[in-house]
Amino acid sequence: MDEVMDVNIGMEMVNIVLLGMLFIVGIAIARMRSLFGIVMLSGIYSLVSAAWYVAVDAVDVAFTEAAVGAGMSTAVLLGAMLLTSRTAKPEKPLKHLGPFLVCIVTGILLIYATVDLPGFGDPNSPVNTGVGLTYLQINWHDTGIPNVVTPVLGSYRGFDTLGETTVVFVAGLAVALLLGFGERSLAETIRKEDKAPPPLPKDDATSNEKEGKE
């Protein structure tokens, strides 16, 4: 009995330390003005939350968060930052008051609602006795795949995943339609290499660009 309690408290300590780190990173993002710092801190936020996912047994989610949040979204945010600006404008001090009050009130209401939620790690909560438990029980008979997440993703909820893949595809298409497919930089370098042998390029725009680059 005592041992179980100790384990729980150790678990809670890990939780609280990691969530506290997330909290500090979040507040740093809120107070920061350098966009580069914000982007890097959001990458750190993703990495810490990946560590927290491992602590609550969600290894697949942790893997995804580490690859997507810390790798992909940081790269995309950096690319967008390079195309826009480097710093955010300083804000007027009184403008913070309204959003701050709204957030405080919403937070208090949500915390009031948590009183009715099941406790952390409760095996008898409605979440953990419903369809999730059924998946765990019937998965080995149905598919013979040990990692339950994969069959639920691919087989039981295959329609969902088809939809998600389509959403990712459409998002890629939308970005390409908004920004172009990105062949412009390739075309430019090829043109430069082709025009490198003659010393004087005739086109004014390209010569300006060359001067700007060098």
Partner: peptide
Amino acid sequence: NPLPHVLMLTAIVVGV
């Protein structure tokens, strides 16, 4: 419970 993991795994990718 594997179900929230599946839902959130796809949500993260769609999020990016």
